[in-house]
Amino acid sequence: MTAMKMDIAHVAKLAKLQFDEQEAQKFEGQMQSIIDMVENLPPLSDSGALIDPENPMIMREDKVTDHCKRDELLKNAPQVQAGCVVVPKVVE
């Protein structure tokens, strides 16, 4: 496999991270060496979907459990108003 290049700016945008120029440079080098390391994988025949039917899931019964009190739930929120979490105005 040929060495993959990582588009730091694009990946950072996807991950919602930002780096200043100096950081970006340091990261670029580090990330490239990490990618050079991990991309050394043996050739494997594609054996299809990533499923594991040997370990089937046990599902949950459709039964209501106690919900959390709103105050408890929002206690950790940085900004709360009218029983809701507040975020900067979203315009879609």
Partner: peptide
């Protein structure tokens, strides 16, 4: 109101 409110 300046922000948006989130109802989960």
């Amino acid at each position: 109101f300046a922000g948006s409110l989130v109802d989960f």
